[in-house]
């Protein structure tokens, strides 16, 4: 059984590594894969605060924007390579998360109030960066050195794909590691019933802050890569729609399931893009209607997430195979 798992894991890694060869010179295929992975990373990171700790966080755009602006500004002002800048961006996002997390958790802001507060942060930062002319301002700031690997400004999406693969595996590993650690049990407990967990001795404030910090770091890091992919920084990177979408991917994929948000990102982002590319030019808004109907159906019939539907289907299809593995 153990050998099978190792072989399977190696097969999975190999599959992800060779995926770009399926697309070869198809840049559209590569940016689509990269975009899906990007949302997969964001949603997987969100799973720590949203899925495990049960906090409906709507501030992914805030941390992503901070990461993007830190990386972009360090490149523009100090010619610092984004290979270092993205980590500084992650740390800036962490600092901000601590600044907002401390009072929010100290004053027990939770549930819908936490969602509203986190959502407001994104808009506050967007406006602040529009007004902060030295760093932001209303005009786009282009990132130079297109085509340079040193400045993470690749002319092909394949390197971005592999960067996203690394970030994705790191996010999945962190999720998995937390879920098996004491912190994970605390988060799941307080996610189920915060008051009960506190009575039982869980340090709610500290646990939530740790989850927020880890989530912010991953999203901030991803924000730096995001800026390099799109080639500019702008206060609109502090995006409320993006923040909501990340939470939707996490919820629809399956909250609390390690790979649930990734499955949500793979299915929903690819479906939306498939509809946009094929219907968007002719029937303008129809693809968004179809996308919304699918989301509603999933929420109505699979409130625990689409991953549970896939799990059930696979369980039926491969029941014999699974039984044989258990018998080994």
């Amino acid at each position: 059984m153990k050998n099978l798992r190792i072989v399977s894991l190696l097969f999975l890694i190999l599959l992800v590594l060779i995926l770009p060869f399926f697309f070869r010179s198809n840049q559209y295929g590569m940016i689509l894969l990269t975009t899906i992975l990007l949302y997969g990373v964001l949603a997987t990171a969100w799973n720590i605060i949203g899925g495990m700790a049960g906090q409906l966080d709507l501030a992914a755009g805030a941390y992503l924007g901070l990461g993007a602006f830190t990386t972009g500004t360090l490149l523009l002002r100090f010619n610092l390579t984004p290979w270092i800048g993205i980590f500084v961006g992650g740390l800036v996002a962490v600092l901000f998360a601590i600044l907002v997390g401390l009072p929010l958790f100290r004053f027990k802001v939770k549930e819908v109030w936490y969602a509203l507060s986190s959502s407001a942060l994104v808009e506050v930062l967007r406006i602040a960066f529009i007004m902060w002319e030295k760093i932001g301002g209303p005009v786009e700031r282009y990132l130079p050195n297109y085509g340079s690997a040193l400045y993470m400004r690749f002319s092909s999406y394949i390197p971005y794909y592999y960067i996203m693969v690394i970030l994705l595996f790191a996010s999945l590993f962190v999720n998995y590691w937390i879920s098996r650690s004491k912190l994970g049990y605390y988060l799941i407990a307080l996610g189920d019933d915060e008051d009960a967990a506190e009575v039982l001795g869980v340090n709610v404030r500290s646990s939530k802050l740790k989850a927020l910090v880890i989530y912010a770091f991953i999203v901030g890091l991803t924000g730096g890569v995001y800026a390099c992919i799109y080639g500019f920084i702008h206060p609109n990177f502090f995006s409320s729609p993006l923040s909501t979408e990340v939470a939707i991917l996490g919820i629809v994929g399956g909250m609390g399931i390690t790979y649930g948000p990734l499955v949500g990102a793979v299915l929903l982002v690819s479906m939306r893009e498939l509809l946009r590319a094929n219907l968007g030019g002719q029937l303008e808004s129809l693809y968004l209607v179809i996308y919304s109907v699918v989301l509603i159906l999933i929420v109505l019939f699979r409130p625990r997430g689409i991953t549970t539907l896939l799990q059930d289907t696979f369980n039926k299809l491969f029941s014999r195979w699974v039984r044989n593995n258990h018998a080994e």
């Binding site: 399977s8 999975l12 799941i188 790979y259 793979v266 498939l274």
Partner: peptide, 23 residues
């Protein structure tokens, strides 16, 4: 928190390839 079933994950990943290739 549910743990990753590696077999399921492989099937999911293969599905991913098929979905994306068609997309």
């Amino acid at each position: 928190m549910k743990r990753i079933g590696i077999g399921k994950l492989i099937v999911l990943a293969t599905t991913l390839v098929l979905v994306l290739t068609s997309c």
